[in-house]
Amino acid sequence: MNLCKDALKVLEETSRTFYIPISRLPDGLQDAVASAYLCMRAIDEIEDHPNLDNLTKAQLLKTISLKLQSMVEGTAVADFLMLLTNHSYPLPEVTIRIGEWAKLAPETIAPRIWDTTAAMADRMAHWALVGWKIDTEADLDCYTFSVAGAVGLLLSDLWAWYDGTSTNRSQAIGFGRGLQAVNILRNCGEDMIRGVDFLPNGWTKENMHIYARRNLSLADAYTNALPKGPALDFCRIPLALAHATLDVLVLGEPKLNRNAVMSLIAQVSGRK
């Protein structure tokens, strides 16, 4: 099995929602977006690992960041394996194989993906060390940029690299922040169990809904401005799911059910 097919297999096991739009991207762009998504999912699994203490998480994330910053064409995948396989608590496959995902990207855009992932790993390490302490809306903006707004910027760079598509970068940040805000609301209960509260002091879920809607409006503007093509096809699926998830959360449902997800994807993409 070649690396791209194997990456799509791991992607499908990790996130069916993102597997669908990524699997429909054209060659070249598909490799780039899959590389970016899997690299970021790899470090996200460390941030959310239920059995690692915060110091260990920060050390792992900083080590990965340094390794990505020193990446060159000949960097061996084994260098990453040595870093990630000797721990008391095993890490998931998507994390252990981050070296492979990093090398999946086309060489003309790979350094941009490595740079974004390295920066995100450093930021995640910071948040792990401070226990994800968010006191103010400015703190929340900082966190949502760290783990999602920067992803919106990377996507804009990937669209421009592939076919010259130009985007509003402030709206691109809102695209990432909006999706992340919905994730925070959806995972509120699980986060509380592990002792993490992303809501600023004095905020209720209603305040967080307002924050999410405000950023999703930027995401709407970002997506509506995209020309017909792979960028638009990709972005409108997670955006539609974010809006729909926010709607069911308001109604007291914990999340969209699988049938609703698949129906919405078919409706948005025009494909079953």
Rank of each mutant, 00 (worst) to 15 (best):
R112P: 00
L52D: 05
K272Y: 08
R214H: 06
A138R: 04
G270V: 12
L216Y: 00
G164E: 07
K103W: 00
L3E: 10
L251Q: 14
C188N: 07
V182F: 08
R112V: 01
A76T: 08
A119I: 08
G174V: 14
D135N: 13
A260C: 03
A160M: 06
W114S: 10
G195F: 00
L239I: 06
W101S: 06
P230M: 03
C4G: 06
D163T: 07
G131I: 11
D79W: 04
G99Q: 01
L256R: 04
L25Y: 11
V10M: 04
L55C: 08
H49G: 09
P50D: 06
D139I: 02
R271M: 12
L25M: 13
V72M: 07
L83R: 08
R112C: 00
N201E: 13
E73A: 08
E100I: 03
Q267H: 12
D163I: 07
V33P: 09
W127F: 14
A231Y: 02
A221N: 03
G152S: 07
G152V: 11
Y222H: 13
N86W: 04
R97G: 04
D6N: 10
L52Q: 05
H87R: 12
A260W: 02
R258M: 15
D141K: 04
C188G: 01
N2G: 09
I98M: 02
A172G: 12
Y37C: 13
V10R: 07
E45G: 09
K255R: 15
A240K: 02
L91D: 12
C39K: 13
W161Q: 05
V151A: 04
L185A: 08
N259K: 12
V182L: 05
D141S: 03
M40I: 11
K205A: 11
F175R: 06
R258I: 14
S156E: 03
G229Y: 08
I210L: 11
R24S: 14
A244C: 03
V94G: 09
E47N: 11
N168V: 11
E206T: 08
L52T: 06
L226E: 00
L52C: 06
L66Y: 07
G131V: 10
H243M: 05
I184G: 01
I265L: 05
D247K: 07
A102T: 01
D31E: 15
E45M: 13
Y37D: 15
R97A: 11
A128P: 02
G74E: 15
W159S: 03
A225D: 11
L155V: 03
N183T: 06
D44Y: 10
W127G: 01
S146I: 01
V248C: 07
C142L: 08
A231G: 13
L264D: 05
S263D: 14
L179F: 09
A36H: 14
T85W: 02
A7M: 05
W127S: 02
S23F: 06
T17S: 14
A244P: 04
A34F: 09
K255H: 14
R24F: 08
G152R: 06
N168I: 09
P106E: 02
M262T: 10
Y89H: 15
A160W: 02
Y89S: 15
S65E: 11
Y211S: 07
E13H: 07
L38Y: 13
S166W: 04
M1H: 09
G189Q: 14
L83G: 10
M124S: 00
N215F: 04
L81A: 15
I210E: 12
T117Y: 00
C4L: 14
D135I: 14
R271E: 15
W114R: 03
